[in-house]
Amino acid sequence: MREMPLISVEGVSKRFRFPRTAPDILTGRSPAAVHALNNVDLEVHRGETLGVVGESGCGKSTLARCLVRLLEPDEGLVRFDGQDISLLRPAERRAFNRRVQMIFQDPYSSLNPRMSVRQVLSEALSVHAMRQKADIPARITELLGLVRLPADAAGRYPHEFSGGQRQRIGIARALAVEPEVLIADELVSALDVSVQAQVINLLLDLQERLKLTVVFVAHDLRLVRHISHRVAVMYLGKVVEISPTEALFAAPRHPYSKALLDAAPELDPARRTCVAAARGELPNPLDLPAGCLFNTRCPFAFERCLAERPHLSNRGPAHLAACHLTDFGKPPPATIAAQ
């Protein structure tokens, strides 16, 4: 039997409503709302790295915030260790917050500018009673070593560090409470490429040593391929495909995943193409298309796609896609035999 997922997201939707305007009130219309998440289903297994990819505005960050309960879903629920996280009692909630930690995208706004590194870390350690008071200084030195910052960084304030160093302070803050899950929301997208590698390698190293489960939200496909065991592709607030990493990159089973992979610049000039894989722009998230959300841009759309929204269905071992064309991208039998 398969083991129970550590985190399971079940039919989560999240809308951000605009304030009611005078015309709304006069016409009795409900105010406009951005549909950030539309019926997301997702499972995260213990010890794995799940990559979540998609274009800007596809709801990746909203999903990350729902996972740590910074946002409450409008519909659906998130289970952690089998428990619905919206029903946690205060003490349980504190324990949940300790076990699931988020690392933020912007290293400049995610640290309190008025608190030194020592204050940040000792606050986390003492609020969650991770260490006796006397042991806190030693633990701070240990944590700084873990994220490869010098011990004398403790007395400094965030503005004295570079972006990459700040991101490592953010990681140290998350690790201070010895979490089981790290939710990394665009962990390195604000950093220089050279620094990205340092931070990513640090994360991989820590994951291995501390047996962490990681949800890695990013828009950089190469990065996600490099570090993830499984990948979920999101489009307009919905997971359209989820699969083991190599299976997805070898044979995407959803037209959007294929478009996304094809859009990534190819390093080998011989394999470059000029064919656009998806047409047009992302539809307005205020006014979602009926039927399949991708039907406005999909080169393969047919009548059923305009009427009926597809659900995730099986495409192979642990490989799900939400498309009416169940044979889309199916590798020819010969390749399967070769494997």
């Binding site: 910074l70 949940f96 917050n97 930690q101 988020m102 706004s109 640290l111 309190n112 606050e123």
Partner: peptide, 13 residues
């Protein structure tokens, strides 16, 4: 609305 406030909420403070 800044991330450090969310970070503090995420820490369970």
């Amino acid at each position: 609305r800044l991330d450090y406030a969310d970070a503090a909420r995420g820490m369970g403070y």
